[in-house]
Design a binder for these strands. Structure first.
Lengths: 146, 146
DNA sequence: CGAGTGAGTTCAATGATTGGACTTTTAGTT
DNA sequence: AACTAAAAGTCCAATCATTGAACTCACTCG
C-alpha cells in the first residue's frame, strides 16, 4: 500500500486520520467500546487476519489510544484497554453510528444508545455549548487560524 | 491490499467504514466541506496521486456521497459536490476535528467553527436531545436490537 | 498422554498504492 | 501559426500492505 503519512498536515482531521484512517482500526475501537479486550475476541468478532490485528493493536498502543496490560501470568495473557485518549473517541463512534443508521440500508438501527442510569434511549445531537442550538440549525462556517 | 468488505456486518459503524474507511476518502470529504470542488484542487491540496484520487472520487460518487456535475463544456469540466448524504457527514468531521484538536500535538486548533449569522465561535457538544444533557455527563451503554 | 485455547509469528501470493510519464482538449501568448 | 499552459484524467512498473494458511509456544483440562 505504501501509505502516505498525513501527520505533517496542519489539520486536526488529518491528525485524527493519521491514527484512525484505516478500515480495521476503528472497528477495533468500536469493539473496545463494546467491551472486547482480548486478542482472540477481537479476531473472532472482526474476522481479521491475525497479523493485521497484531499490527493494528500495536499501532493503537503506539498512538496511546489503547493500552496493553497483563492480566495474568502463566500463561502470560494481555488485554487491550482504551486509554482516556481512546475513550475520547466516543464522539467519533457516535457520529459514525448515526450516519450509518440514517444512510446505510440496514433496516433498523442495530444498536441503540442507552442511558445506564435511567435505562432510556439516548438520541445524541450536536449543539453549540453556549446557545444550545443544534448545529443542524446553524449556518456553520469555519475560520483558519493564521 | 485486497480489502475486506465490511458491508455484511450488521453494524452502522461498519457500514460507515465501508464507505469512508480509508485514509484519503475522509480527507477528500473534509476538503469538500472546505469548499474544494475540482479534481486538480483536491489533488494539489492533498498531494494525492491522480490515479488514487480518481478511484476515491469514483467510489464517493458510487456511494452517493458526492455528485459529479459538469460545470462547463469545451473543454468538458466537472466538479465534485457533496450530496445531502455527504453533507450528513458534518458530525463525523466535527468529531474528528475535536478529537484532533484535543489529542494531537498541534499547538492551537488550526480551524475554528463559526456561526455564519453571528460570527461567533461554535463549540459543539453532543447532548441527548430529550434531556439536553451532555453525553459526557451520562453513563452511556448500548443495546443490541435483536 | 492428547486435545484444545490464547496469542502470537512466518510465509507466499495477491492486489492496492505510488510517482512519473503520457494524453486530450482548449485558451492564451508570441 | 506555433508554443505553452492548465484541467482532468489514463497507463505503467515498482513497491509495499494485506490476506489466509500453517506454524509456534505455553499452558490447561480430561
Amino acid at each position: 500500500m505504501k501509505r502516505t503519512s498525513l501527520g505533517h498536515m496542519n489539520c486536526s482531521i488529518a491528525q485524527t486520520l493519521e491514527v484512525l484512517g484505516d478500515p480495521w482500526t476503528l472497528l477495533i475501537v468500536r469493539d473496545a467500546f463494546f467491551g472486547v479486550t482480548r486478542f482472540e475476541d477481537f479476531r473472532r468478532s472482526l474476522d481479521i487476519p491475525r497479523a493485521t490485528l497484531t499490527s493494528r493493536l500495536d499501532s493503537l498502543v503506539e498512538h496511546d489510544v489503547m493500552e496493553r496490560r497483563q492480566y495474568q501470568q502463566r500463561p502470560e495473557r494481555h488485554q487491550y484497554l482504551l486509554t482516556e485518549k481512546g475513550r475520547g473517541l466516543r464522539g467519533v463512534m457516535v457520529s459514525m453510528l448515526l450516519w450509518g443508521d440514517k444512510w446505510s440500508d440496514l433496516a433498523e438501527p442495530p444498536v441503540t444508545l442507552i442511558d445506564a442510569s435511567t435505562g432510556g434511549e439516548i438520541e445524541p445531537v450536536y449543539v453549540d455549548r453556549r446557545s444550545a442550538t443544534p448545529l443542524s440549525e446553524l449556518k456553520v462556517t469555519h475560520r483558519f487560524n493564521t
